[in-house]
C-alpha cells in the first residue's frame, strides 16, 4: 500500500511538473476565404537564405498533425511538393512573401503543376524554439564501486511559431495564427537523474495545428 502511494505521488508530481507550460494563442483574419473538400494546402517555411530558423522536425510535426486531425482538405507533404516543383520551390527560389507569389506563379509550368495538384493555400510557418535561461548544477561521478549524479538543473524554453495563410488565387495573406508556449524543464538527481521535460515544441505543434484547423473551419 505504501509502495502504491509513493508511486502515485511520484507520477502525480511528474505530470504536474511536466505539464507546467504556458500557452498564448493569437488569430487574425485579413480577407474572406474558403476551402472546399478535396482542395489542397501545403505547409511551407521561409528559406535559410533570409535567416529563417524554423526547425525541419517542427514542419514535419505540423504536416503529420494536420493530416491526422482532419479529412476535409488534402495536405500535400512539404518535401513531396518541393520535389514536384523542382527547381522552383527550393530555398533559393521559393516565394518568401506574398509579394513573390506573382512572379512565382508567372511560370506556366509552375502554375500548371499547382493547378494539377489543386493547391489553394500555402500555410507559411515561421518561428523557432529557444532556450531563454538555464540554471542549477548537476555533477556525475563514477568509480569502481559504482556511480551516480547529484544536483538540480533547470532551464526555460519558449516555442514561438506563427502560420500565415497565403491564398494562391488572390496572391495575398488571408490571415495569421500563432502559438507561443513557454515551459520549464527540470532534472533533479539523487544518484539517478530524472529528467522532467517541458515539451514546448510538441505542445506548440499541437496548438498551432488546432489554430490552423479552427481558422479553416470558419469559412
Amino acid at each position: 500500500m505504501i509502495h502504491h502511494s509513493t508511486l502515485i505521488f511520484f507520477l502525480s508530481g511528474f505530470f504536474l511538473i511536466a505539464g507546467c507550460t504556458t500557452t498564448r494563442l493569437e488569430e487574425q483574419t485579413n480577407l474572406p476565404f474558403e476551402i472546399l473538400e478535396g482542395e489542397s494546402v501545403v505547409i511551407t517555411s521561409n528559406s535559410y537564405h533570409v535567416g529563417n530558423e524554423t526547425e525541419t522536425d517542427f514542419l514535419q510535426c505540423i504536416n503529420k498533425s494536420l493530416i491526422k486531425k482532419q479529412k476535409t482538405f488534402n495536405v500535400i507533404p512539404t518535401q513531396q511538393f518541393i520535389n514536384q516543383l523542382y527547381p522552383w520551390f527550393e530555398p533559393r527560389t521559393a516565394p518568401q512573401t506574398t509579394d513573390d507569389l506573382s512572379s512565382f506563379l508567372a511560370r506556366d509550368l509552375v502554375r500548371e503543376r499547382i493547378e494539377t495538384l489543386d493547391v489553394k493555400y500555402f500555410v507559411n510557418i515561421s518561428g523557432q524554439t529557444k532556450t531563454n535561461s538555464s540554471s542549477g548544477a548537476l555533477t556525475c561521478a563514477a568509480g569502481p564501486g559504482g556511480g551516480g549524479c547529484f544536483g538540480l538543473a533547470w532551464w526555460d524554453d519558449t516555442s514561438s511559431y506563427s502560420a500565415s495563410i497565403w491564398d494562391l488565387s488572390k496572391e495575398s495573406s488571408v490571415g495569421n495564427v500563432s502559438a507561443s508556449v513557454s515551459g520549464t524543464s527540470v532534472i533533479p538527481a539523487l544518484v539517478i537523474p530524472i529528467p522532467i521535460l517541458a515539451r514546448t515544441q510538441k505542445t506548440a505543434c499541437e496548438e498551432l495545428t488546432d489554430q490552423i484547423l479552427d481558422f479553416f473551419s470558419r469559412n
Binding site: Y86, P87, E90, P91, R92, T93
Partner: peptide, 13 residues
C-alpha cells in the same frame, strides 16, 4: 544534399 540541389537550381536559372 541541399547544396547539390541548389547547384541544380542555379544551373537551371
Amino acid at each position: 544534399d541541399l547544396a547539390l540541389r541548389d547547384t541544380g537550381v542555379n544551373l537551371a536559372i
